[in-house]
Amino acid sequence: MGGTGHAVLAEGLRKRFGATEALAGFDLAVPEGTVCGLLGPNGAGKTTAVRVLTTLLRPDGGRAEVAGFDVVRQAARARHRIGLVGQHAALDEVLSGRQNLEMFGRLYHLGAAGARSRAGELLERFGLTGAAGRPVRLYSGGMRRRLDLAAGLILSPPVLFLDEPTTGLDPRGRTDVWEAVGSLVSGGTTVLLTTQYLEEADRLAGRICVVDAGRVIAEGSPSELKASIGADRVTVVVRREADLPAAAAIVARVAARGASPVAVDRDTRRISAPVTDPVAALTEVARALRDAGVQAEDIALRRPTLDEVFLRLTGREQAPGREPGGRDAARGAVA
């Protein structure tokens, strides 16, 4: 144990709730000091995975280690090394921010004086000193989440779990949380965060694991994942539907060098295809369309977004049973 260099390691985790298989062979390896984003739709199994990894839930099968400790057999020791910030700010609404942190500090057995000084440090670090004496029920959503984050950091745990840390926050609150997480990571904390927001995963996580139906179906850096569904795409929207075949032929000819298929959407009169030399392709398509007398409403060059990666991987665009390419690439990178 230990020495694997992995702060979080899960192998074949299974968990079933009645007829629902929440985790169906969930594998994960998060190297120490990195930020891993679990990205997936509601019900994909992200929260279940976090609950197993934070010792709150006993898996039906498989095994997991956090900071080198088995989450089932060495749960007590694992709990010393983790911080958990859940979906709902798990705070006492009646107590003040300071009282909350002191209470949790005492439950970490820091002693009364230790808990008090730690609470003071964290309040200052999260910009809550001014509100420290107010009851939490009067806090804004962003303040609550910051306090919640502070409570998860009382021990400066080497591994921090954030379950949808910015769900329900306004943009200001979201930025606050992102900045707080960013500063932690620069201090060497390993972070596993779940999110439905691609922007969040893109911004915070060095590696992203796309979760669907209780399994990790793809993983890699944001750019690897984007690359896995192809290069930049040229898109054309034609004015008349009758022009679609002609325009599709032109785009196909230009894109042929990339040897990739052309996507034609009749409803939106949109044609798109991946290209290898984007700028040259764009000018060539524009000239060829004009020469052919095809009127275009829009010609553009677009980078694939993580949204597309996400939809492509989780929305059943893939043939069933076929593994998307991102995973193998990432496996190599991890090992």
């Binding site: 609950r51 709150l56 007590a76 709990r79 798990a90 705070l91 949790f104 439950l107």
Partner: peptide, 17 residues
Amino acid sequence: AKGVTDRFRSLPMAASA
């Protein structure tokens, strides 16, 4: 309901407390 119970359970405190 508020997740406070879960937070307690994730702490290295005595479960009986």
